[in-house]
Amino acid sequence: MPPTDDSLRPDIIRRARQGERAAMEAIVRRYQAPVRSWVAAHCPPGGDADEVAQRTFVAAFTRIGEFQEGTDFGAWLFAIARFQLLTEITRLRRLADYQTRYGRDLLSRELERRAQEPDEATAARLHYLRECLEALGESGRQFIAWRYTDGLPLQEMAARTGRSVAAIKKQLWLLRQKLQQCIEGKLAAEGGVVS
């Protein structure tokens, strides 16, 4: 499985319970990546993943008095994240135009089901995704960076490469497929969870 960083000192949570801001900051730094990536992977279309992640931390510190020392803080935090995500899903479903914009939310329901999975699944996906990106080749990585880092419009990518927008879409589909297959191959090789 991917390496995990579990370097939070035992006294940090106790100090956070006493209201020490520096301790809270240390906890946010330690858990921001796993919480944000987990929420991002399970938040339905139209949801604000980082907003849910922030609410998770705020809720956790508001209720930190309820945390039982000696138990698994990460598991407790993820339980809060699940609750916050459920709240976001409910909010979105109540939006008048959500059904129109995102259809009958079959995809959202599948994501919601997956939100009950152990969080290692997302951590593993993210870890292997980074590895698979490295293996993608320079040209492929450039496309992915244009799309996900720079947020370039398809038209701009087409102009930069002298290709049609349709060709760019096809290229993105192929790259996403390739990454998906690569991740699933690595998960399967470890006996990990694929879906």
Partner: peptide, 21 residues
């Protein structure tokens, strides 16, 4: 296909997370 779409969507979201990190 629904499961596959969810896989692709999660990878899409994680790409956004990883590459804007």
């Amino acid at each position: 296909l629904r499961a596959r779409a969810a896989d692709l969507f999660q990878t899409h979201r994680l790409l956004g997370f990883a590459l804007q990190d």
